[in-house]
């Protein structure tokens, strides 16, 4: 999973399981990813799981979403079935190879 598929998936789930509209849902997920040093276009499902567990709850609470923990649990379950394609093109993957 790449090219923003994990991002789109989480945004859609957040929109359907919370009081946030589409724009607010996408903005919130973007902020969560920025806080984790990730880019929406390249974030994998595995990385997204960590963000949903550890960063997204406080972003939702900051926006007044009362059931933030439950929303994140639902999103996490929906992410469970998604698989990642292995990418050797990201800067992180390239720099990991450079040092042997």
């Amino acid at each position: 999973m790449a090219n923003g598929e994990a991002f789109d998936h989480v945004c859609a789930e957040l929109e359907s399981t919370s009081s946030l509209d589409r724009l607010a849902a996408r903005g919130t997920v973007r902020l969560a990813l920025k806080g984790a040093g990730l880019d929406p276009a390249t974030t994998t499902a595995a990385q997204m799981r960590v963000v949903v567990q550890r960063v997204l709850p406080r972003e939702l609470e900051a926006r007044g979403v009362s059931d933030a923990e439950d929303v994140c649990k639902a999103i996490l379950e929906s992410l469970g079935s998604l698989q990642d394609a292995v990418s050797g093109q990201s800067p992180e993957a390239v720099f990991a190879r450079l040092g042997g």
Binding site: G35, A36, V50, R54
Partner: peptide, 8 residues
Amino acid sequence: KRVALGLG
């Protein structure tokens, strides 16, 4: 930031 979350 990634390292702090165990992602890097």
